[in-house]
Design a protein around this nucleic acid. Sequence first.
DNA 1: AGATGTCAAGCGGAT
DNA 2: ATCCGCTTGACATCT
Length: 305
Amino acid sequence: MRVGYPCLNLALNRGTNRTLRLASLGDQARIRAVVAANIANLEAIIRFNAEHRVRLFRLGSSFIPFASHEAFPYDWRAAHAGALRAAGALAANSGQRLSIHPGQYTVPGSPDERIRAASLAELRYAAGLLDLLGQPDAPVVLHVGGAYGDKPAAAARFIASLENEPDILRHLALENDERTWSAAEVADIARALHTPMIVDTLHHRLNPGGIPLPRAIERALPTWRSHRPKLHISSQDPAKNPGAHAHGIDPADWDELLAALDEAGAPDVDIMVESKGKEQSLRPLGHPTIPALSSPTTAPRAGAA
DNA sequence: AGATGTCAAGCGGAT
DNA sequence: ATCCGCTTGACATCT
């Protein structure tokens, strides 16, 4: 069992989501400085993860801010290839598997051609970033997105948009969501695209599509073929709306997932732990050496490093 | 230095 | 008809 966390490390007070405003895109030096900070923070986080035997980490979706935007002013692949290869080598040396999760605006199944084109551009950026990092096993995690009142038509558009995009498909992994596309529905789309799917336990609880968690996992596992399967776990914040992530992982939720994996015949997989507490949530999940925050209430803002 | 309003984008559901 | 929440906080401006 390998675990990891997304986007930022609270103990280090470093993140990978530094960005800037669209209005600032004209300042190339500033963009390069933001990207350099994200790469430097990633390297620090990879070193932390290596020290504490953490094997998964998700990059922030704005790792290279506006990389897929038509106004982006330079060739980011050429400009950052060297630094990205170095950071990727660091991850590879400690066996870390990276990933990235484009946002909710990425909708390849949209009926609007412009939205489809922007979505493909965003996915090419995400996949290309992982390629430059030298991470052939790294997923670009994506929800199916809108259904527009006609799920079969939306699914067909989604598949048609992506089926001839090998550079994207080498990294793409589809995830069930909390209200529209259930795990079983996502598994059907994933099979059509020969791409893997990620079961998210909290989304599945809110949108189970009529099947229990072990059955959902059984449907997802074969989609990974030669790749190591990956799942998401998170716990509900009891004080917030359904779907909001809690600070940590409820032990009952963890036990439920382990039991479901055992029942589905896949005891050893990769689990991305999505919580407000980031790496702190891994301490009770087999990573006791992760240092606690000295004072959460007085800690400086993440990303300030 | 700290607080606050805003930030590229799409969708579904709530008010 | 309008707002909210999400990938997820971080930027930018004002005090």
